[in-house]
Amino acid sequence: MGINSKPVVFAVISALVILVGTVVTVFVPLFMPSTQPVSRFVKPYTAIEQEGRDIYMREGCNNCHTQTVRPLRTEVLRYGEYSKAEEFAWDRPFLWGSRRTGPDLNRIGGKYPDSWHYKHMQSPQGMFALSNMPPYGWLAANRLDVSNSFRKTRILGYGYSQEQVNQQIAEYKARVTASGYDSKETRDLVTPAGMRGDLTEMDAIIAYMQKLGRDVKSMEAKQ
């Protein structure tokens, strides 16, 4: 009886059947520029922000935090302006998440000073007694590995030269280790003495937090 006695034909037909929906809803949108529009206001991550993003991924932060604010009244009230597609043009991979055990982070950039983040990463419970976020104080004891930073930005197509990447790293290091850094006191408090003159993983993840959602503000201001 028909294809039920022809396994190879059956497999080919099955493949065609599953490919219809796949082509229409996944493959075709890949080639439509409207799926992932770009905006000149949304800049790629700096080498440091990208390293921070990689630490965010390594620690699986996306398991508890989303990065997409939905166009719902209470959600915009809670987090800020809803997310626009343009914001994610440089995100490989996307980090929208699927569960909010912790709050959404797509509008976290600029919401708090760096010192808030140092304190909070070091001990979420010190800031909110009943928080269930794991403490990440140990990130401040890890020197940031920048040996692949240039390679990473090149693969991601950010268009920086080796010199630009070196400069971004040096500038950020100078910023957080300067005596005039506005969050110096807290940074010194959470960073082991031997690491205070270096860039740590904590510095990088905070740089990433502060980047989130900032460019879109200038995009909206100009529109």
């Binding site: 890949l30 799926t35 994610f88 043009a89 440089w90 995100d91 490989r92 991979p93 996307f94």
Partner: peptide, 14 residues
Amino acid sequence: KSYSIYAGANDANV
């Protein structure tokens, strides 16, 4: 360590 070849909304869709 690797990066997805798809970006943003396309990566989410895939």
